[in-house]
Amino acid sequence: MIAVRPPAPGDAAQMRRLLDQLGYQVTEADLQARLAAATPEDLVLVAADGESLLGVIALHRATILHIGPVARIMTLVVDATARSGGVGRKLVEAGADWARAAGCTALELTSGKQRLRAHAFYEGIGFTASGLRLHRAL
């Protein structure tokens, strides 16, 4: 049975392993520090099957002046062995529930151009392409 819950103190190593599957290299110490720095505008959830983490989602609530409050999915990763099994959908729906309760008018995300399978997943659960993300390092 898959449970969606906030991360427990001992989950950082498994969360790091999941992030690494998408090429997001972060140390366990940095991940723990980022989790500790989360504010009420942030939500992090994991999908767990017993002691094994199958996925993680992180969202941030932001006010967009011309839209109002929105929740942005900052991170979504599902273990390669659990993809297409409903884990991602469960995580997104839990995030959407939080966003609604926080007064958000929309759920949004960005996704790398190369992640075609992820794009199909997002479109399959109701997301539509609506813009272009640009990036500038600081």
Rank of each mutant, 00 (worst) to 15 (best):
Y122K: 13
Q114P: 05
I2V: 14
V70A: 08
A82H: 09
G86T: 03
R117N: 05
G86E: 02
G126M: 04
L134R: 06
T63N: 13
V92T: 05
R34F: 15
V56W: 05
A38K: 13
A37E: 13
A37P: 14
A8Y: 04
M15S: 00
R17W: 01
T27A: 12
A96V: 13
G10C: 04
A137P: 12
I64E: 05
L45K: 08
A96H: 14
L18A: 08
A102Y: 04
A101V: 08
R100H: 01
A36F: 15
M1C: 00
Q14P: 01
D42Q: 15
H66D: 01
A33L: 09
A71K: 11
E51P: 09
P9D: 02
D97C: 06
R61E: 06
L76Y: 02
P40G: 05
T75P: 00
L43T: 04
L59V: 02
A47N: 02
R5N: 04
L107K: 00
R117F: 01
W98M: 12
T110A: 11
L22F: 06
L45V: 07
A62R: 11
K90S: 03
T105D: 11
E28A: 06
A102Q: 15
V70G: 07
P69G: 02
R83K: 15
L91F: 05
D30S: 10
L31W: 07
I125K: 06
G23N: 11
D11R: 00
L18D: 12
A3P: 00
A129F: 01
T81K: 13
G131S: 09
A47P: 06
A120W: 07
T27R: 14
S111N: 04
Q14W: 01
T105G: 15
V92N: 00
V26I: 15
R100S: 01
S111I: 05
G131K: 07
A106K: 15
A129I: 04
G126I: 03
T105F: 13
L138K: 03
V4N: 04
H60C: 07
P69E: 05
T128S: 02
A137I: 11
H66K: 03
Q14V: 03
L35D: 05
A12M: 08
L54Y: 07
L31Y: 08
Y24M: 10
L59P: 00
A82L: 14
Q32S: 02
I64M: 04
Y24Q: 12
V70I: 15
A102D: 13
R17Q: 00
T27Q: 14
Q25Y: 15
A137F: 14
A129R: 12
A3K: 08
L107T: 01
A13H: 03
V77W: 02
L22A: 08
R16Q: 12
V78F: 08
G55N: 00
A36V: 11
Q14G: 07
S84C: 14
I2H: 05
Q114D: 14
I125S: 06
L31G: 07
A62E: 10
R61G: 03
K113S: 14
L19K: 04
L18P: 11
K113H: 12
A106D: 10
L18T: 10
E108M: 14
L138P: 09
